[in-house]
Amino acid sequence: MMKKVFTRPKALTDKPFHYCPGCTHGIIHRLVAEVIDELGVADNTVGVCPVGCSVFAYNYFNVDMFQASHGRAPAVATGIKRSLPDRVVFTYQGDGDLASIGTAEIIHAAARSEKFTTIFVNNAVYGMTGGQMAPTTLLGQKTTTTPKGRDKEQAGFPVKVAEMLSTLDGAAYVARVSVHNPTHVNKAKKAIKKAFEVQISGQGFALVEVLSTCPTNWGMPPNEALKWLEENMIPYYPLGIYKEPAEVK
């Protein structure tokens, strides 16, 4: 007899992910689902998925879901949370969605301290549309629209979302984590859980930026992609908690 040590979270459906081999979206989905299970809020949760690789996330999370137009998930989540203030609301967005077309929405949702949680997946590239430059693409990084590498003269600088949002008074909790190895996966889960708890306790807007890989569009095998993330992304996007509410005594 074998002992069952690993099981699918209840907050995930049994539909297989469509993500590419080695993509870390699967890990991040799982972490969010585990947190929903551990907090026991699946029946009370509404998620909002973006346009981008995770556009089909409504097929995977076993909770009520919205599919939002490109970049507008924070506005949609605002509409939901203002309608149903006692529900747990989260958005799941990529870097093109959140940090390019949706900058106005995320900034103002944070500024208003909307009481929802955002999971921001930063893999430094547009995945679904074919590997174009993202707002978070690193200088020198090759993409289909920066074939010679991102040049600051031509394409400017990468956007540091966690740092930027943490300057806003309305942002209650902002952290940047990574999922490139098991230790960091565990840390990422802690941050995601905290971001949900901050919402549930009514402390305001919470965002976790998760550094993620895209082996397909980075053009490397999954193990190299994890290494590339560690060596190139983390130095530019330092991990850590940028903002958290003072502990209630």
Binding site: V46, V48, F66, A68, S69, R72, A75, V76, A77, T78, G79, I80, K81, R82, S83, L84, A104, E105, I107, H108
Partner: peptide
């Protein structure tokens, strides 16, 4: 809202709720 674009998407959220 911060823009008409956001306003109509807030409507989408509330209507869907």
């Amino acid at each position: 809202a911060e823009s008409e674009v956001s306003a109509i998407n807030m409507v989408y959220g509330a209507a869907g709720a």
